[in-house]
Amino acid sequence: MSDNREREIVAAFVALSSRLVDGYDVVDLLSGLTTDCARLLDVDSAGLLLADPHGVLHLLAASSQATRDVELYQLQRAEGPCLDCYQAGAPVSVPDLSEETARWPQFTAAAMAAGFASVHAVPMRLRDQVLGTLGLFGAHTGALADDDLSLGQAFAHVASVALVQGKAVADKDAVVSQLQLALSSRVVLEQAKGILAQTGDLDMEQAFASLRRYARDHNLKLSALAASVVARETAPRQILDHFTERLSTKRAVRPNEL
């Protein structure tokens, strides 16, 4: 591991843990966590699936549109390594998707069509309860180095902690309501993206970028801003105009800027 990468990893965890203390927005934090995974691990993108109280998985965050699509495809077709990882509560490693076409015929075809060659899924666990999975998608074949795999597991653990917000593990009801809150924040976030996409004639990724940009520049929680767009308290134009302005200024916007 290069010194530089090590520093970045430490910085990412410090940033994550300080945000955990500050009072945070879980969807925002987990979106950032998937981008951290994509940036710091030897993978190209990452996605987080979270189970609802009935054990049905939902997409909570993804670092790219392609990952979003492939994750959703797994949910739709009810097959794929992330689902198996959730069922088993154990990591599932697929170094070469082309060798697993018999196991997940539909998923492998879709994932390879989207440009992925390998997938590693690690469970998000809270003692005996499996909350969901973190899927790591690579454009190359090959197993993940042990370092990367344990880092991936560490990120999955941070995600679990973020989701339950330090609630006593014994308090299963509190955990359930926390997970439901995260899922319903996700609903509102998607609705807000739809409103912005329609109003500004953007695709969903741009719509999300505009929402996140506005939230960060105004020090707002992403889900609070999304809720206020859905409730018509913040005009979509205001967010879209801000986005256009920021895009036209010279200052480069760093990815993952916190």
Binding site: H58, L72, V187, E190, K193, G194, A197, Q198, T199, M204
Partner: peptide
């Protein structure tokens, strides 16, 4: 009804028709 595309489309329809979710 609990799918990402349904939520996104809901948002778009909200903007198209000026209605709530």
């Amino acid at each position: 009804l609990e799918r990402v595309e349904v939520y996104q489309a809901t948002g778009m329809i909200m903007a198209q028709l000026g209605v709530g979710p």
